[in-house]
């Protein structure tokens, strides 16, 4: 573990909690893409199947359980409890255009042609594009609630910090995982436009609205 990964995991956990809390407190999922949340639930489910096969540390196991349970709770709130507030018209990204190519790529490019490893690879590739329905929805509605922008900032920051974690681990441990690094780069690049708007608008107290 290193400082970058520590802060990154904290930022990721914060994002997940911020979103769950926002939906629960406001009893509304307006402006939230249910499709992205379903993709994240799939990402965690396919990535953390090793909960059943290997134990790394109490931290590792507990964080995985927290991520999985919070993501399913979020999906439940969006599609069941507060489904009346779900804005399906603006959450119209065709996720099959993400899942199918990502699935194919995971079968073609992976570290080991074993089921758990292919699922892990699928999860890594899927996570890099899972936020697209949410970003697409914001571009369609033309705005985002401030709490949603904080959620997105923490979510984007987490994988950006993982990039530094991988630099650290390469330098100090000689460890690197090309699949995770390339996917992490793609994932972080997809947030760049949002990061710019977040820093130039939200941090100045303005509301995030498009076109800028």
């Amino acid at each position: 573990m290193n400082i970058f990964r520590g802060i990154a995991d904290f930022s990721h956990l914060a994002a997940i909690i911020i979103l769950l809390h926002k939906i629960w407190k406001s009893r509304s999922c307006a402006g939230i893409s249910g499709k992205s949340q379903i993709l994240f639930a799939i990402v965690f489910t396919t990535r953390y199947l090793d909960l059943l096969t290997s134990f790394i540390s109490l931290y590792n196991t507990s964080m995985k359980v927290i991520y999985i349970s919070c993501s399913y709770a979020t999906v439940y709130l969006i599609y069941m409890k507060f489904r009346a507030t779900y804005d399906g018209n603006h959450d119209s990204f065709r996720v099959e255009f993400l899942v199918v190519p990502v699935g194919g790529l995971a079968v073609l490019i992976n570290h080991d042609f074993a089921l758990l490893e292919i699922l892990w690879t699928f999860s890594i590739y899927l996570e890099s594009v899972a936020i697209l329905p949410q970003l697409f929805m914001i571009s369609k509605t033309g705005e985002a609630e401030t709490i949603t922008t904080h959620y997105l900032f923490c979510l984007g920051l987490y994988r950006a910090l993982y990039l530094f974690n991988w630099i650290w681990r390469f330098y100090f441990e000689g460890f690197f995982d090309m699949i995770a690094i390339v996917a992490g780069l793609v994932q972080t690049v997809l947030y760049c436009d949002f990061f710019y708007l977040y820093v130039t608008k939200v941090l100045k107290g303005k509301k995030l609205s498009l076109p800028a």
Binding site: R5, D9, H12, R47, D50, S54, I56, N60, M63, K64, Y67, H111, D112, A114, E117, W120, Y162, N165, D177, A180
Partner: peptide, 10 residues
């Protein structure tokens, strides 16, 4: 290459 890959990151 039946590498048993242990992914230690979240």
């Amino acid at each position: 290459k039946a590498k048993l890959l242990l992914h230690d990151e979240l």
